[in-house]
Amino acid sequence: MKTSRSFLLKSAFAVSAIAMLTLAACSKPADKAAPSADAVTATRADWGALSDGTKVEAVELKNSKGVSARIISYGATLQDLMVPGADGKAADVVIGYDSIDGYEKTPNYTGVTVGRYANRIAKGKFTLDGKDYTLAINNKPNALHGGLKGFDKHVWAIEDVKSGADAASVTLKYVSPDGEEGYPGTVTTEVTYTLNENNDLTISYKATTDKPTVINLTNHSLFNLGGVPVSRPATDAYVKIESDAILAVDKTLIPSGELPVKGTPFDFTTPGLVSDRIKSDHPQIVIGNQGIDHNFIIRGGLTATPKLAVTVEDKVSGRGMQISTTEPGVQMYTGNFLDGTIVGKGGQKLVKYQAMAFESQHYPDSPNHPTYPTTRLDPGQTYTQTTVHHFYTVK
C-alpha cells in the first residue's frame, strides 16, 4: 500500500502530541489526583445541653463570600446568620440567644422551625373528616404555632451534613407522634438548610403522615439587617412585597376576609419604609398592636418552584434580602409584641420593632376556611415547601 507523506507527517505529529500529553500527566500525578477544596463548609459541634441533660448540637454552614449560618438541633433553629454589609464587615442579622438556656426558658419563636401548624387556629378547634379536634389555647383565645410544645421545643435528629464546592447543607428530622398537641397522625418531618456560593440560604421541608392531618410549616426567624445586637429598629428598612391583598384579621388576629392593599399602609407593591407605615391609624394596624402581623397573599399562589415574594433593604448597612417561596402566603410581623422579655444576644432586651419576621406559609386558620389553599396531608402524600433567602449588597 502506498502511504502519503502528509499522512506520515500527521501521524508523527499525533504520536508526538500524545507522548507530550502522557509525559505531562506523568510528571504531575499529584495535581491531577488532588481533590478540589470545598468552598462551602459544614462544621458539626456540640452546643450545650437542655436542663434534663439532652445534648444539643450545632452545624455551621459557611461560604467563601463571608456568609455563614448556624443551625442548632433544638427546634431545628437558625441561631446565627452572618451577612456582610456595604463596608464588607459581616454582622449577625437574626435575633436569638447566645446559649441554649435562652431557647429553652424564654423561647418566643426566635429562628425556630414552627409546626405542626404555623400561625393561628381559631379557638383551637378544627374538624377533619367529620371528627372534631381540640388544641391547646396558647394565644388566647386561639391556638398558635403548634401548641404548648410544638416542633420548636424538641431536639431534632441531625440526619445528614454535607460540604461541597458550591453548597453545604444540614438535614434535621423530627417524628411527631399521633395525637401530639391534639393533632392526628404520626408525622415525620425533615428540614434542610442549604447555603451556597450565591449567598442563598435555602430552607426546604418535607413531611409524611400515617393518618389524615393538617400541616403548615415555616421558619420563624426575626431579622434586623442593621445587625444584632440591635442599634436601630428593624422597621427602618424598605420593603417590597409581591402582593395585591392581605388577609384582614379580627381583634384576635384570625382572618376575616381579603383586603386589597391599594390605598392602605399595607401597599408594598413599590418599596416602602416600614417605620412610616406602622404610624398609621388604619384599623388593621391598630389591631396589630400598632404594627403589622398579617398574611400577605403572594401573587402566583402555591407554586412548584420558588417565586419572588419579599425584598428587604437596609440602606444604612447596605444589606439586602430577597425571599422567594413556593408558599401562597407570607406572614409579615414587625415585632409589635416584643416587650423586653427576650434577653437576647449580648444581653440585650428586645423591644417593639427591633426585629421583623417574614414567614412563608399557608394561610392562618386554613382548616376552618374551605376556600383557602388546603393544609390537609393524607397518607401516601408528601408535604413539600421551599423558601430561599438571598443576601446581597445594596448599591
Rank of each mutant, 00 (worst) to 15 (best):
S243R: 03
A234E: 01
P255N: 08
P283T: 06
T252V: 06
A234Q: 14
P271S: 01
S256E: 10
I285E: 02
P283S: 10
I285V: 15
D250R: 05
R232A: 11
E242S: 14
L253N: 11
K240I: 00
F268A: 15
S256F: 03
I254H: 05
S231I: 11
K240H: 01
T270N: 04
P233E: 07
A248F: 03
F266P: 10
H282Y: 09
S280R: 14
F266R: 04
I278F: 13
V230H: 02
K262N: 10
A237W: 02
L247E: 05
I241R: 07
S231H: 11
K251C: 06
I241K: 05
V239E: 07
D236I: 03
F266Y: 08
E242L: 13
P271Y: 01
I241A: 07
E258L: 14
R277T: 13
I246N: 01
E258N: 09
I241G: 02
G272H: 09
I254C: 12
S275V: 08
T235L: 08
I254R: 06
P271D: 01
R277K: 15
Y238S: 14
P255C: 08
P265K: 06
F266L: 10
P271L: 03
D236L: 12
Y238P: 00
T252A: 12
V230E: 00
